[in-house]
Each structure stands twice: as C-alpha cells, then as structure tokens.
Amino acid sequence: MIRTVITCEQHTDCRAIFLPPVDSGAVVLERAARAVGWRRLGATLHACPACTAGRGPVRDTGDCPNCGGLTITTPGDDRCRYCATPPTPPTHRHGDHHDAGA
C-alpha cells in the first residue's frame, strides 16, 4: 500500500516524517500535521515540530508519532528526543504499579 506522508524540508539533513495512523486525503493530512506542530513553508514544503521549535533536525529515527524521531527515557516519562512528544499510547516502565481497586 502506498500512503501519503509529510516530510521536513526545513533542514536538508532532517529525517522527520509525519505518517498519520490512517490513510487520508491531502486536506485531512495537512490539518492533522498542523495539529501536532508541523508548519507549511511553501506550496508543498513543510517544517517538522522539532525544526520549528529549534530542536531539529531529526537525525535519529524512532517511534515518535509526530515527527518519527527517537523516543528517549527522561526522569518521569518518555519523550521524543527532538519534538518532546510523549509516545502514544502511554507506556509504563517496569516497576510502575497501578492499583485498580485501591
């Protein structure tokens, strides 16, 4: 299957990619990307959330749903190394305890 994606053209070496969870048309794709921090640079050019915030370019790819960057563990939670987005769905590390009935 071929899917439409958005890539970052802010920096020539940025590897950011926005791949929506479902295949959609150009208008829906553009709206979804804008909602998570992507910015339009021209008719077909875009900047990722990391480059827009001055934390790019994305060089290490991973599982970030907003830019495709590497997710790292920080004190308290996991975040994208570049755009600071938490992974979705939220993950629980070994040792986390949740009492359902307490």
Rank of each mutant, 00 (worst) to 15 (best):
R59M: 14
R39I: 08
A50N: 13
P89N: 06
V27Y: 02
P65W: 10
R15D: 14
A32T: 03
H92D: 07
R34L: 15
G25P: 05
V27C: 06
D78T: 08
T44G: 14
D63I: 15
A32G: 06
D96V: 10
A16M: 01
T61S: 07
H11M: 03
T12F: 02
G69Q: 04
R79M: 08
P90E: 11
I6P: 10
M1Y: 12
I6G: 05
A35W: 01
N66P: 00
D99K: 05
D78L: 09
N66G: 11
Q10C: 01
G95R: 11
V22E: 04
E30M: 11
P75S: 09
C14K: 05
D63V: 08
P89C: 13
T88P: 03
V36S: 01
A35H: 02
I17H: 09
G56T: 06
D78R: 15
P21R: 09
G62E: 05
T52C: 04
R34Q: 14
W38T: 09
G42Y: 05
G76N: 11
V5Q: 11
Y82Q: 03
C48V: 01
A84Y: 11
C64P: 05
R55P: 02
Y82C: 03
A53R: 06
I17L: 08
N66A: 11
S24A: 14
T61P: 00
G56L: 03
R39K: 12
C67V: 11
T71W: 11
P89E: 15
W38A: 09
C8E: 07
T88G: 08
R55N: 10
Q10A: 15
G56E: 03
E30D: 12
G69C: 01
H92R: 14
M1N: 00
R93V: 06
L19P: 01
D96S: 13
A84W: 13
V36C: 15
T85V: 04
P49M: 07
A26S: 12
F18M: 06
P90L: 10
C80W: 07
A47P: 08
D13P: 13
R39C: 09
L70D: 13
T73S: 14
D13C: 06
D63R: 15
A102V: 13
T44P: 00
A53N: 15
C8G: 03
A35T: 06
H94C: 03
P89A: 05
G42A: 14
R55E: 15
G69F: 08
A84V: 07
R15E: 07
R34Y: 00
R34E: 14
D78E: 13
G69R: 02
D78I: 01
C83E: 03
G42E: 13
D13L: 00
G56Q: 00
V5Y: 02
I17E: 15
D96I: 01
C51K: 04
G62V: 15
H11Y: 02
A102R: 08
R31Q: 13
P21S: 09
T4R: 14
T44W: 06
G42W: 02
C64F: 08
D13E: 12
A26N: 11
T73M: 11
R3I: 04
C64R: 07
R55F: 05
V27N: 12
